[in-house]
Amino acid sequence: MKLAITGKGGAGKTALAALCTRVLAERGRSVLAVDLDRSPGLAVSLGIDPVDIALPDEAIEERADALYGWGLASGVTAAEAVARFGTRVSEAVTFVGQGNINSARNHTKEYVSAVRAIVEEFDEPGWDVVVDLEAGPSTPFQGYAAFASLALVCIEATPASVFAARRIISTLDYTGTPTGIVVTKGRQGDAEWVAAELGPVLATIPFDVEVRTAEQQGSLTTLGDGSDALHAVRLLCNVAETTVRGDEMMAR
């Protein structure tokens, strides 16, 4: 299964990506966790140091056919790239990012095609892929989520978050990407409010002070196994797996 995680800034995309990664790993899957955000976030939440230069020079090459003129080095498959250039977070989890903007020259342009190619082509048995996208509709609009077997749109129960979700869902519909609405930091009545605005909700992740505490301290690796949010993400992963399997059967 390949999950893309989108939504307004601050809605909890990165936390959800880190928790989905954890849940899938605890089920015995290998997980490729990818940060398609030019700001560090997923690395921090996974408990590794953010690296601004995401890939070594040998991983990319100048390619006329690639966005911004740089792509994955020819002859390197997605699986090889993950094995050679990914960061091992744990036995089960490998991280790949596109790097972070840290100067007035946006060097991440040189990596984005390579990382997108890895995400799009990677298809290894026993593996799931979890991709954290940048805040807002810009990168979904550019097709960054089109690889996904399911795109999760994170929504807090605020009008601004609904604005972002509408724009994102419209772009995902255009690329025919299956979409699920996830209410984040949920409190009483939020799921009903979001459903009235946008339609059926796939899952609700409750507001969980333990997540906030863990985020304050840095990574989500310190989050306890009994966390309410983690429990909700386990249920979400069940629903996601069922949805993706159902879509695959329909496709056959």
Binding site: T14, S39, P40, G41, V44, N100, I101, S103, A104, E215
Partner: peptide, 13 residues
Amino acid sequence: RKSIEVARRALNV
């Protein structure tokens, strides 16, 4: 930490 990391990089920009 996450937003401080973004802020640190904004200062560099």
